[in-house]
């Protein structure tokens, strides 16, 4: 019997998504505004952990390769996130959808 499917990490989940990686980020974060924001909701709202806090300088690390293109980040935190669609040849392609 295989493991219960609950026992998989987000990294394993993300590895299941077929995609082509771009060298350039399709996401911009206004670091100053991010630092000032107390809530920093993107850190947990993003379903692909694109955004990680750099504990050393308080800035937001952008793991744009993780992005599953839902757009939640810029709807939740428009003050400091600018998100645009990745270039046509890049980003994810669902096998099932």
């Amino acid at each position: 019997m295989k493991d219960d499917p609950k026992n998989i990490s987000l990294d394993t989940r993300l590895a299941l998504v077929t995609r082509k990686f771009d060298k350039v980020s399709h996401i911009e974060v206004d670091q100053e505004k991010f630092k000032k924001c107390e809530e920093k909701a993107v850190l947990f709202l993003c379903p692909a952990k694109v955004y990680v806090l750099n504990e050393d300088n308080g800035e937001c690390i952008i793991n744009f390769d993780n992005c599953v293109e839902c757009g939640t980040c810029q709807v939740a935190c428009p003050e400091y996130i600018k998100w645009k669609n990745p270039h046509g040849v890049f980003g994810l392609s669902y096998k099932y959808g």
Binding site: D4, K6, I8, P47, T72, Y94, K95, Y96
Partner: peptide
């Protein structure tokens, strides 16, 4: 999602399954 999948009412319905794809959308 993990919380949901571990609920006693759900876990037996998905038991033994293999996750093929993870996805998110608004």
């Amino acid at each position: 999602l993990d919380h949901f999948k571990s609920h006693f009412a759900i876990k037996n319905l998905i038991k033994g399954g293999e996750v093929l794809e993870y996805s998110a959308h608004m």
